[in-house]
Amino acid sequence: MRPVGRKITVTVNGEQYVREVEPRLLLADFLRHGLQLFGTHVGCEHGVCGACTILFDGVAQRSCLIFAIQADGAEILTVESLAQSGKLNLLQKAFHEHHGLQCGFCTPGMLMTALELLRENPSPSDQEVRAGISGVLCRCTGYKQIVDSINAAALAIAGAEAAE
């Protein structure tokens, strides 16, 4: 028996999509294979690695633990939403400048997690940054450069806001 698909309407990075999905399709797989948005990475499929973290209605969540069908009517932001017309945003630029990535596997999850962190706490302490990203695993950097990157991004964002 081929399970019937159901129609969902979902807004991803500002663009509306109407698609038919099988109930068991994970949101992470829908984004990657349904919408060809390969920025969202899939590491563990049980909520532990954080690579698949996206903003779901503005809140950081694991896209491997949500079914696509549940996203009907939702607004989703993935890592692809950050750069505007090919230009890195301040957070991405800070990661680039402070070696916040090596292989880049954890980076989409790190960026989306840091986005929420800095929104809630625009000038976090090192301790708060470490706690904030504790749910995203990085096997390359040793985290030091990621913490540096997020601190640098906090300063850059504050500077940009002051200049406005």
Partner: peptide
Amino acid sequence: VGHQAIRNR
């Protein structure tokens, strides 16, 4: 309880 992204949902 887990991490913030876990508690968010």
